[in-house]
Design a protein around this nucleic acid. Sequence first.
DNA 1: TATGAATGAGTCTTCATTCAT
DNA 2: CATGAATGAAGACTCATTCAT
Lengths: 201, 201, 201, 201
Amino acid sequence: MPAKKEIEETRRRQILDAAEKVFTTRGIDKARMDDIVQESGLSKGALYWYFKSKDAIIRAVLDRVFIYEMREAEALVLTEGSSSERLKTFVAFAVQEYKRFEKMLPLAYEFVALAARSKAIREAIVGYFKRYTAILTEIIQQGIDSGEFQPCDPEGTAISVIAMYEGLAMLWFIEPELVDWDHMDTAPIETILAGLTVEKS
Amino acid sequence: MPAKKEIEETRRRQILDAAEKVFTTRGIDKARMDDIVQESGLSKGALYWYFKSKDAIIRAVLDRVFIYEMREAEALVLTEGSSSERLKTFVAFAVQEYKRFEKMLPLAYEFVALAARSKAIREAIVGYFKRYTAILTEIIQQGIDSGEFQPCDPEGTAISVIAMYEGLAMLWFIEPELVDWDHMDTAPIETILAGLTVEKS
Amino acid sequence: MPAKKEIEETRRRQILDAAEKVFTTRGIDKARMDDIVQESGLSKGALYWYFKSKDAIIRAVLDRVFIYEMREAEALVLTEGSSSERLKTFVAFAVQEYKRFEKMLPLAYEFVALAARSKAIREAIVGYFKRYTAILTEIIQQGIDSGEFQPCDPEGTAISVIAMYEGLAMLWFIEPELVDWDHMDTAPIETILAGLTVEKS
Amino acid sequence: MPAKKEIEETRRRQILDAAEKVFTTRGIDKARMDDIVQESGLSKGALYWYFKSKDAIIRAVLDRVFIYEMREAEALVLTEGSSSERLKTFVAFAVQEYKRFEKMLPLAYEFVALAARSKAIREAIVGYFKRYTAILTEIIQQGIDSGEFQPCDPEGTAISVIAMYEGLAMLWFIEPELVDWDHMDTAPIETILAGLTVEKS
DNA sequence: TATGAATGAGTCTTCATTCAT
DNA sequence: CATGAATGAAGACTCATTCAT
């Protein structure tokens, strides 16, 4: 017997899937509850049964957008190999994620814009970045400790790297031709690695 | 005698100033024409006398946000000194701009989000980035030509640098504590410069 | 259990009744949606639930005004008696209709005026006249065939008769005193019948 | 020196010509003062200098539409010839008028519709019909007096004739194909004349 | 639980009219 | 006399939310 809980979970997912799609294509503000109703195949009443308001749906979608699995990335920290290797692997992983994320970028930037006016949204996004930063900082710290990387502020550097990739994603979003996304996982990070790595004489 | 043209110019500026402020604080979608009316001190009719619609105001504000003076930056290309110097000066200049830009960032990200659905907006933003890229590419090319920089793809590198600063600005926008903006004009670019510069031994 | 359909039908009627009244008293253009809201006892939202726009309501009212039962009149064609009798009965019937129609005449003339700019309206009105013409033409044709009427163009004559009554209705509408509506169903048609009928010597 | 009066007269005519055109094409309600401004080539201020309001323009246009020269028709009454001849000449004249009037018919029917709510408009239109009726009544009376026409109610008959032509004009306006306007000046009136005329044998 | 008809405050936009120059 | 910028009341329409069934 598919417990109530399961049905409820299914309904919520249906609604959020629909909302995500509608928000992405029409924009959050322009999206109407009726659009979500139609897209979800449910009824108006059902939406309001599972979510208190449009705002509640927005927040739930926000969480789906900015909270995803980083376990794979986090596991990297414990991997064998040089720090450069790990850094590259991490970046390659992140670039993969961006690619999967592509369709949701419009939504992501809407949330970024909304962050200016909503603490809840700001916190969700900040949490996402902090997790990313923590992983990258750890990798860089390992490199410094092992003498592979120049001494430097590991967190600051991590943030610079993340910023660079966020920026590239944004440029790519605005005009794909600006960015050669197929080499994204190598060229930019190598520029940084070149400056980061201790000269092997 | 303040010629007609002048009055017209004043009115348009009044309206756009008001719109910019309202869009920034309330968000473009949530902004009501009445807010702009109140903020501008003009009347509803006056707004519609000078601008066909809310959308026309949005576009006009867009242009004000993304089209500004880069002459100063463009002049840098012709400056004396090493390419590293020029690069740093350019970055310092850009960081200054971001600081002046601070209040408008929410608006800027709204436009970025809107870019997904509007060619006009996309083009305005792309134009802005292309101008920036052109300057930076030129500086890097000069560095390569003079043997100061490693051989590399100058445009790709320029875009990476711009992306990094765009990303930093975004992080700073979302959570100022994430980014030490006071050293923004030095630390990140130096990491890149380290990798870019030919070893002087 | 008043099936859904019934409620829908009731609501539409409520709205169209209200619209008809408001259009008639205030004029179509001067009529506000809020007037219809008030007159109907429904809410703004309800109006827009059942009709897409004011224009949709106008069209629906148009149909109610110009599409009505002519079955009774059409049945006349098959009646016993002389063609003169049938013609008179038909006219008497039509005059009755005009009387019932009295209150809607302002609306009817608004539609006539609108016909100049709307194909849909024009077609609705033309359809109405064509049905009337067809009946009358048939009656006159019968009269000619039986030798009761002079040979003539039956459709042209039918149109002349209809035109005369339409014109009388218009004069009556503009200034009731101009037309003795109580003898409308006899005097004018007899003038025509006198000229139409073959002399019985 | 073209006295002030002349300029004033010119301006008024310019405005009313423009208004007539705009009212006819857009409809009185949908016509904007700005349309008249543009069409007239004058300025907004000028319109309000010569006419107090849009309503004043509407009334002035009304007068131009419904008050025109009937002197020619009125002169007919004194003409030589049989009453039948005079009647036919009168009808031919009227049909000519309708043809000239063609472009203004949409406007005329708007005024008819407005008559329901405006005494002033009603009176203007009634005045027009009364003049026409008076002429026609006189002609018919002459025919009765001379023994050419059957004894009948001359005014009632006159009104029937006018109504018929008004109705034909309306049908023609709504759907030109319904009415063979080229024979309008003969066929319909002859049907009536046939019934009206005393048998000569 | 689920439905979808109904609500009505809120929004953009229009346009007759005014008035400083 | 003439101009056209400015006013602001009014009106069509939208849409998040509610609630009787």
